[in-house]
Amino acid sequence: MTKVDFYLLTSHQPQASKRFACKLTEKAYRLGHQIYIQTENQAQAQEMDELLWTFRQGSFVPHALINSEEADESPVLIGYEREPEGKLELLINLCAEVPAFFSRFQRVAEIIGQDENHRHAGRQRYRYYRDHGCLLETHELNF
């Protein structure tokens, strides 16, 4: 059964959700997990690719875009539009909708910013996961 963690951020900064996704990715990577970051589109995937290199000085999170040559060797993949291959444990969803393949992951992280559109979409995803029998947990964070 998939466990879904909803992270409710209090920050109004426009990049807060993406920066928190980087922090969460770094933590999961250090714990030895295989991670997939699902983005809305190619532009957001490339933005996350760049942000993972620069979000915090001294941080190192080896990652690759799903369609790159390095994807087979990377513990962190970033993609959009298609289901990733391989054994991955954590899905960090940055999309407004639930990915159809979410149930193949042990854990899913949903990051909800302060924007009302994000909150509304987050509530819809919460109901979807609840209706599909997932274990749900909510975390309110000062981030």
Rank of each mutant, 00 (worst) to 15 (best):
G32E: 09
G32W: 10
G32L: 04
G32N: 04
G32M: 01
Q34P: 01
I35V: 15
Y36F: 15
Y36M: 08
Y36D: 05
I37P: 02
I37F: 12
Q38Y: 07
Q38M: 07
Q38S: 10
T39V: 08
T39I: 07
E40F: 08
E40Q: 14
E40W: 06
E40I: 14
E40P: 05
E40D: 15
N41K: 08
Q42K: 14
Q42D: 12
Q42G: 00
Q42P: 02
A43P: 01
Q44R: 10
Q44S: 02
A45R: 05
A45I: 11
Q46A: 03
Q46H: 15
Q46Y: 11
E47G: 11
E47M: 02
E47R: 09
M48G: 00
M48L: 15
D49A: 06
D49N: 15
E50W: 12
E50H: 14
E50G: 10
E50A: 15
E50L: 15
E50M: 13
E50T: 15
L51P: 05
L51Y: 07
L52A: 12
L52Y: 11
L52P: 01
W53V: 11
W53R: 03
W53G: 06
W53P: 03
T54V: 00
F55E: 13
F55Y: 15
R56Y: 09
Q57H: 11
Q57M: 11
Q57N: 09
Q57R: 12
G58M: 10
G58F: 02
G58D: 03
G58N: 07
S59N: 08
S59I: 03
S59R: 01
S59D: 08
S59G: 01
V61A: 01
P62T: 03
H63I: 07
H63L: 10
H63W: 05
A64Q: 09
A64C: 08
A64E: 10
L65N: 09
L65V: 08
L65Q: 06
I66T: 04
I66H: 03
N67K: 14
N67G: 12
N67D: 15
N67M: 12
N67Y: 14
S68G: 13
S68F: 13
S68N: 13
S68P: 14
